[in-house]
Simulated scan of single mutants.
Amino acid sequence: MLPREQSESFEHTFLCEKAAFADATTGRERQEDKCGLRTEFQRDRDRILHCNSFRRLKHKTQVFLSPAGDHYRTRLTHTLEVSQIARTIARALRLNEDLTEAIALGHDLGHTPFGHAGERMLNELSPYGFHHYEQSLRVVDILEKDGAGLNLTREVRDGILKHTNQVANTYEGYAVRFADVIAYINHDIDDSIRAGILKEEDIPSAITNVLGHSKSARITTLVCSLIENGLHDRDEAEGDEGILRMSAEVEKAYKQLHRFMFDSVYTNPACKSEERKAQDMIAFLYKYYTDHIEALPAMYMNLAYHYGVDMAVCDYISGMTDVFAVETFKELFIPAAWMVK
């Protein structure tokens, strides 16, 4: 047997009946010969891991804009933490870990510079709207590999598109959806404590007494609760989130923690003081490139011809890192300093 065939055989031996099996994938938009070494989902994971958009995540904001320190999360470290949590959930529930990992690694590829502040501004500016989960799918379908796309399987594409608020077609997609929230809520607490915005004791005891008094304890509680409650058939689930569910007590505390973070951090002026400047930069860049399409790189000019100027400009700006966006803004709008002789 080829290594790929051995892996496919192992999936049918070990995975639960609700898992997605690599040899039963619904396929790709463009048919390809199979790899002798890797399953279809393993190939997708590798394609995402090696693509340019994935590398750029290391210079994109998670929550804190341009933090003065090396230990704050970026969009890349967030993605890696989501992947680790999602894989833990998938392994324990005997879901397809390769599919889960591929979805997790690709779920934020379409995120803008400056985090959700940048996303909100592009959503305001574009007549088509802008959402990072839709852009992530556009990245893997169209923008990567100089416009050729990554040609991923439909299961991975579905999980990427639906990781935020839609009904995923696979249980692996649900695992990533929960892992995403578990990761960002807890690492954002960690970063907020590092920034002096929060102290651990600020979190209400009604939450910490249930979930735990540290980041790792809370993650463990949330993940274990999901695993202990298992997988539920779609027809017996209470809404789409009922397919994976926590215990009533843990879910209540989790929702209280979510609300606490929005009130204390995500809308905190100390945390968001620079967001307006970042959004103004994006607005200036958007206006400049829609008025000067010839200034776009050649690939994006071609995209403008096929998809319209607004969409191509969103493609270009959303792909920028924080640093590149700032440098581009300086080059376009700030006069060069006089040279001192």
Rank of each mutant, 00 (worst) to 15 (best):
M1E: 05
R4T: 04
R4M: 03
S9E: 10
F10M: 05
F14M: 10
K18H: 12
A19K: 06
A20E: 06
A20S: 15
F21T: 05
A24W: 08
T25W: 05
R28T: 10
D33R: 14
C35D: 15
R38K: 13
T39Q: 00
E40G: 04
F41M: 04
F41A: 02
R43D: 11
H50M: 11
N52A: 11
S53M: 04
F54E: 14
R55P: 01
L57H: 02
K58Y: 08
H59K: 15
V63Y: 15
V63N: 14
V63T: 11
S66T: 12
R73V: 03
L76E: 13
T77M: 08
H78Q: 12
E81I: 04
R87T: 09
R87Y: 06
T88D: 09
D98G: 05
L99E: 02
T100P: 02
E101G: 00
E101T: 12
E101H: 06
A102Q: 00
I103L: 01
A104V: 08
G110L: 10
G118A: 08
L125G: 02
Y128T: 01
G129L: 09
Q135H: 12
S136Y: 09
S136V: 03
S136M: 02
E144N: 07
K145V: 10
E155F: 02
R157C: 13
H163W: 03
T164A: 15
Q166N: 14
A168E: 14
T170F: 00
T170Q: 14
T170R: 11
E172F: 04
G173R: 00
V181H: 11
I182L: 12
Y184T: 09
D188V: 07
D190K: 13
D191N: 11
S192R: 04
R194Y: 05
R194A: 09
K199M: 08
E201S: 13
S205D: 10
A206F: 06
T208L: 04
T208S: 11
S214M: 02
K215E: 11
S216T: 13
A217K: 10
T220N: 10
C224E: 13
D233Y: 06
E238L: 13
D240R: 14
G242I: 01
I243C: 09
I243K: 14
L244R: 08
S247M: 01
K252W: 03
A253E: 07
L257W: 05
L257C: 07
D263L: 14
T267C: 12
N268Q: 09
C271K: 07
E274Q: 15
D280R: 14
A283P: 01
L285D: 05
Y286G: 07
Y286R: 02
A298P: 01
N302D: 12
L303I: 09
A304T: 06
G308H: 02
V309Y: 02
A312P: 04
C314H: 06
D315E: 10
I317Y: 11
S318Q: 00
S318V: 01
T321P: 08
L332V: 05
L332I: 12
V340G: 06
